[in-house]
């Protein structure tokens, strides 16, 4: 138990510290890297909680896709490094105000919220502990929830078609790869001996 507690404090300390560094570091690339560290540590906390599926999804989706995308965008944008940190002071009052409000709301939630067991007990899909999270999701995702799965697939298909139709630009003048043509080429047809006269082009 003590190991779990120690791990929790380790993960949460690094998570909060790296979250601070995300907004404090001068270099946006460093910010994104700290964000990735933050994601990894929250994945660790999920693992401690026994929610291994969420942990994996967090690493795969957020670290593997979203954060890397961020990284690309940040690297491509030519951001002025100094201008970011110089505005911190001017935004401090409004940031503090929002922070205090959010803190007050969190306090309200913590001290007034009562858990309604009659509701939460109905939430778990199966009560027996023999299955892990991933197995339980696997059990219902393709059976009971097949509609949602398929709908999500259709949404992805629609967005894929959309991305292609909006960006692909077929110009007849553009040179494209023709694999048949490439395969059919051989040395006899490709190399020509030309007798060049001095002083003239091809």
């Amino acid at each position: 138990m003590i190991v779990v507690n120690l791990l929790f404090y380790l993960f949460s300390f690094i998570m909060i510290a790296s979250a601070f560094m995300v907004i404090l570091s001068r270099n946006p690339v460093h910010s994104v890297l700290f964000l990735i560290l933050c994601f990894f540590n929250s994945a660790g906390i999920f693992l401690i909680l026994g929610a291994e599926f969420l942990a994996f999804i967090l690493v795969i989706v957020y670290v593997g896709a979203v954060a890397v995308l961020f990284l690309f965008v940040v690297m491509m944008l030519d951001v002025e490094f100094k201008s970011i940190s110089s505005t911190v002071i001017s935004y401090l009052p409004i940031g503090m105000t929002i922070g205090v409000i959010v803190l007050a709301e969190l306090m309200l939630v913590l001290f007034t919220w009562k858990r309604d067991y009659s509701v939460t007990d109905n939430l778990s899909i199966t009560s027996d502990k023999q299955y892990s999270n991933t197995e339980i999701i696997g059990l219902v995702l393709y059976t009971d929830n097949i509609l949602f799965f398929q709908l999500a697939g259709l949404i992805l298909l629609a967005s894929m078609i959309g991305a292609i139709v909006l960006t692909v630009n077929h110009r007849p003048s553009a040179k494209r790869q023709d694999i048949n043509k490439q395969v059919e080429r051989d040395a006899e047809n490709s190399i020509k001996n030309i007798d060049m006269k001095p002083g003239s082009g091809i």
Binding site: N145, F148, A158
Partner: peptide, 23 residues
């Protein structure tokens, strides 16, 4: 609620593309 949300998304994503199809 889930089929509600997913169907709204399925309905609106193609519409976003259709709005800007004259790119």
């Amino acid at each position: 609620l889930i089929s509600l949300y997913l169907s709204i998304e399925l309905q609106s994503l193609p519409l976003y593309v259709l709005a800007s199809i004259r790119n």
